[in-house]
Each structure stands twice: as structure tokens, then as C-alpha cells.
């Protein structure tokens, strides 16, 4: 999900020097067209490799940064059951980041390089995680809307052309289903609770609705690179298609909760068999992407601080491992 078609392309492939090399892109495209999976050591155009590295690492960064807004409420979860469920969910997100870093590493970039890109601010991650979690209801909204949108985007990627990415997505999708249910259940409990709890739920929906539908990225009409990603079967559906599907599924869920989606233009169009919805304020999206969202600074600072504070630990572990190796060598 957290792959908003941000900055998805590297340079065009260098013209072939030999006839044999010149045939490679054609053969590669033929494999893609035949729904064959590309594996790590297979020949691939450099642009395909770079696009994937950027998309997969952005996806991984999003999972890691995504641990923070929800992690913010672990110590304050209002029941022991909610606490363990939330810990398990955030832990899953960390695990998903790991599967994705692992998939990206098969393309020739190291975890250390990717982490450095995130911490320096060079790498992007999904803008949704730059919003604050101000109440317990935000946790419900995130599970219901943000994970809901993520699932919508992730299922098609299970069939993407690059084997390790597709396999990571299959594993992630299997684990993701409880995330959305846990969020919806929180919203349901609040919506059926006291007036203060109902107001808390409505307030969270008011703040998380528009950022969630912005997660799908700008309209494809404004995105020049969708076509190439589609041809390489990295992207399987357009941003607009996925966004429409998400709204069509989610609006009835909000109605069930007795909550109001903060879009006055939202209405069911019987003829089109879709929900019509109001205009998205893309200026907010771009501002957040540029680093001016509510929590961009805090999120990166938290990751930098963790990384810096952990340096002596990581070094100690390596030093110990080396000592053990030398001891084993002497004993041999």
C-alpha cells in the first residue's frame, strides 16, 4: 500500500551494445506478458530493478514508520485484551517491514543502505503515517481505514511479476486480515458505547477519512509512470480504480457504524453503481509528502533516535560474534 506511485522510475535502459544484448529487453517483456515470475538473478532492465527497489523499500519504510503512530497507544490501551492485540498488530507491521527489506535486498541494495536513506530523509514512505494518533479511536480508524486501503492495494501485488515481492505480499496479506477487523471492532465498540465514545469515533473518522483515500495516490491522469509499471506487472490496477473500490466498500461500513463520512458530496450513484465523492485536496497531500505534515519531523526523529541509541548494542553484538569465531578457531 504504502506505494503511492511516488517517484517510481529510474533512467531508461542503456541502448544495447550487441544484438544478443539487444534481444534481452524483448525476451524479458515476453516473460512478463506470459505471467512468468522474475527471480533475483534473472536478467532485468535496470529501470525495472530501480523501480522495484524504490517501491519495495518505500513500502518497507512505511511499515516501520507505521509502527509509531499505533505504538503511541500501546502503553495506554484501555484493556489487557486490546493491549495484546495492538502489540501483536504493531509487531506484525515490523515483521512486514522485514519481509519487504528482505525482498528488496535480493535486488542488490542492503538493509543498511535503505535505513540510511530513510533516516536521511532521502527515502519516502506513505504520507498517512505523518498524522498524529490523538485518541484511542484513532487506532480504530487506522485499522479500519488505513489497513483497509492497504489490503486493497496489496492483494493485486501478490501477483506482481517480481517473485520475492509477490511472495512477501502473499505472506503479508495472510497476516493483514486481522488488522482491519481489529480496527473495525474498536470503532464498533465505541460507536455503540457512551456519547463521549461515539463522539470520539466520529472525530477520528473526520480526521482520518481524507488522508486514507489520499493513500491511493494522485489520479492516474496526473501520473506519467503508471503505464510502464503496468506493462511490467508491478502495478496491476490504477490509483483511481483502487480508490473507487475502497470507497464503495467502506461507505456502507461507516453507515453500519452510524457514523458520518466527512464528505458532503458522497452519494450512491445508482446508474454508475458507484459512490460519487467530493474533490480531494491534493495540496495537503503534497505538503505532507514534502515534509510539512503534522508529524513528519517527529516520525523521523524517533527512527533516528532509536538507530543512534542502538549503535552501541549492534556494535557489541558484532564484536561478541567475532570473539566467538576467534575462540572457536583457536579451539579447533
Amino acid at each position: 500500500m504504502y506505494t503511492q506511485a511516488l517517484d517510481t522510475h529510474g533512467k531508461e535502459p542503456v541502448p544495447a551494445a550487441t544484438a544478443e544484448a539487444g534481444a534481452l529487453p524483448g525476451r524479458f517483456q515476453a516473460r512478463i506478458d506470459a505471467e512468468e515470475k522474475i527471480e533475483p538473478k534473472d536478467w532485468m532492465p535496470d529501470a525495472y530493478r530501480q523501480t522495484l527497489i524504490r517501491q519495495i523499500s518505500q513500502h518497507a519504510h512505511s511499515e516501520i514508520v507505521g509502527m509509531l503512530p499505533e505504538g503511541n497507544w500501546i502503553t495506554r490501551a484501555p484493556s489487557l485484551k486490546r493491549k495484546v492485540v495492538l502489540i501483536a498488530k504493531v509487531q506484525d507491521e515490523g515483521g512486514h517491514g522485514m519481509y519487504l527489506y528482505s525482498a528488496a535486498e535480493t535486488l542488490g541494495i542492503s538493509r543498511a543502505e535503505m535505513v540510511a536513506q530513510l533516516l536521511s530523509g532521502a527515502a519516502k514512505y506513505s504520507s498517512i503515517f505523518n498524522y498524529p494518533t490523538l485518541t484511542w479511536a484513532d487506532l480504530g480508524a487506522i485499522g479500519w481505514l488505513v489497513d483497509g486501503a492497504a489490503i486493497m492495494n496489496q492483494i493485486p501485488i501478490c501477483r506482481c511479476s517480481y517473485g520475492p515481492y509477490a511472495r512477501a505480499m502473499v505472506r503479508i496479506c495472510k497476516e493483514e486480515s486481522f488488522h482491519q477487523r481489529q480496527g473495525f471492532e474498536i470503532m464498533l465498540t465505541l460507536a455503540q458505547g457512551s456519547p463521549a465514545q461515539r463522539a470520539m469515533a466520529q472525530d477520528a473518522l473526520n480526521r482520518w477519512w481524507w488522508p486514507s483515500i489520499m493513500m491511493f495516490g494522485p489520479s492516474d491522469a496526473d501520473s506519467k509512470h503508471t503505464a510502464q509499471s503496468m506493462r511490467w506487472k508491478i502495478k496491476r490496477f490504477s490509483n483511481d480504480e483502487l480508490r473507487q473500490k475502497f470507497i464503495d466498500i467502506t461507505a456502507p461500513q461507516a453507515h453500519f457504524l452510524g457514523l458520518t463520512i466527512p464528505d458532503e458530496e458522497l452519494r450512491w450513484d445508482e446508474a454508475a453503481q458507484h459512490y460519487q465523492f467530493g474533490p480531494i485536496d491534493w495540496s495537503e497531500f503534497h505538503a505532507v509528502l514534502k515534509g510539512n505534515g503534522p508529524c513528519n519531523r517527529e516520525r523521523l526523529e524517533a527512527r533516528r533516535a532509536a538507530h543512534a541509541a542502538g549503535q552501541w548494542v549492534r556494535e557489541a553484538a558484532m564484536a561478541h560474534a567475532e570473539k566467538e569465531l576467534r575462540r572457536a578457531a583457536r579451539a579447533a
Partner: peptide, 14 residues
């Protein structure tokens, strides 16, 4: 649980 998201390495978060 206070450590989650702040551990020295991602594997240690888990």
C-alpha cells in the same frame, strides 16, 4: 512494551 518501535534493530522490536 514501551520499547516497541524504538529497539536497537528491527529484529529486536519483534
Amino acid at each position: 512494551s514501551e520499547w516497541i518501535g524504538h529497539a536497537p534493530e528491527l529484529e529486536e522490536d519483534l
